[in-house]
């Protein structure tokens, strides 16, 4: 662990709320609007941190603990995610298992905090959240298994360090399928269109937004910030595979940051050009992601 390995951490902590701004501006561009300020999420976070709180009488300590556990898990996960060729603060064999576990922990407590309100809306959101995440989990793990097989490395940092132009030339199809699968995982895990619509105003159709309906004040700020971090982390996961390195570490880092924002633009484009899928269709998409990852694994098996 050296000073450089803290760069991905610092960048994630400071820049992740900007991703949401980029997505929103992209959508505004497609809609021909001017759109909200790029820094809107920072303003929102600041405003929420200044507020008091209102709690439902039904809730218990668990409802208050949920956002804090979620944020603590997201922050710990941030330590594990490298940015392009720049290694993470913590890198060890199979660190992606801890990464996935921490995201799971975050989800677990978001869901139980939602159930703590006794609201049917939040129960509905919680139910859909666990439904979709149970299907994305295999896709994520199989995609990771393919990467392990392709690169012969067990840690995210060394894995991303290994990926080169030669890899893409040699087994481009497998890597391409992995990226596609991970992109679907990213959209589903971050509650974006086509799985969930962050802008909907109808409780019945929300997934992630409805689970945090009763949170307010600093708690909601924690939730927003963890969501921004999660978006950054999964984007970094995709970027790490896509980005071949150059000789210059500084240029690498710059490219990686640019690519993460590129992912945000792509997410914005997807949200602008398509509607969300019907809830019944979403599982097909997610199982499809798993199937893509499985195909990638088989390709990786054959090409080696």
């Amino acid at each position: 662990m050296n000073a450089i390995s803290f760069i991905p951490l610092l960048l994630a902590l400071t820049l992740s709320p900007l991703l949401l701004g980029v997505i929103n501006r992209t959508k505004a561009f497609f809609a021909g609007r001017h759109g909200q300020p790029l820094l809107q999420t920072y303003f929102d976070l600041w405003k929420l941190l200044q507020k008091g709180a209102v709690y439902s009488r039904t809730t218990t300590w668990l409802f208050r603990a949920g956002p804090m556990i979620g944020l603590a898990a997201a922050l710990t996960a941030t330590l594990l995610m490298p940015l392009g060729k720049c290694p993470a603060s913590l890198a060890f064999p199979a660190d992606f298992l801890l990464f996935a576990g921490l995201l799971g922990l975050m989800r677990f407590f978001t869901v139980v905090a939602a159930l703590d309100t006794g609201s049917s809306f939040e129960g509905m959101g919680a139910s859909r959240e666990v439904f979709f995440s149970a299907l994305t989990e295999p896709a994520l793990f199989v995609a990771l298994a393919t990467l392990v097989r392709e690169t012969g490395q067990l840690s995210l940092s060394t894995m991303f360090g290994q990926v080169s132009n030669a890899h893409w030339l040699h087994s481009g199809p497998a890597l391409g399928l992995v990226v596609l699968a991970l992109m679907i995982v990213l959209l589903a895990e971050n509650s974006r269109i086509p799985v969930d619509d962050p802008n909907t105003h109808l409780e019945l159709t929300m997934i992630h937004e409805v689970m945090v309906l009763d949170h307010g004040g600093p708690d909601l700020a924690f939730i927003f910030y963890s969501a921004a971090l999660k978006l950054w982390l999964l984007s970094a996961l995709v970027v790490g595979i896509v980005l071949p390195g150059t000789g210059d570490p500084r240029l690498n880092l710059l490219l990686a940051v640019g690519a993460v924002f590129g992912v945000a633009v792509i997410v914005g484009v997807i949200e602008s050009v398509m509607a969300r899928l019907r809830l019944m269709i979403v599982p097909q998409l997610l199982v499809g992601a798993g199937a893509l990852a499985a195909t990638a694994f088989l390709l990786a098996l054959k090409l080696n």
């Binding site: 008091g52 439902s56 009488r57 809306f121």
Partner: peptide, 8 residues
């Protein structure tokens, strides 16, 4: 910090 009913 107030207490109220769950949002419905």
């Amino acid at each position: 910090v107030e207490a109220d009913i769950t949002w419905g």
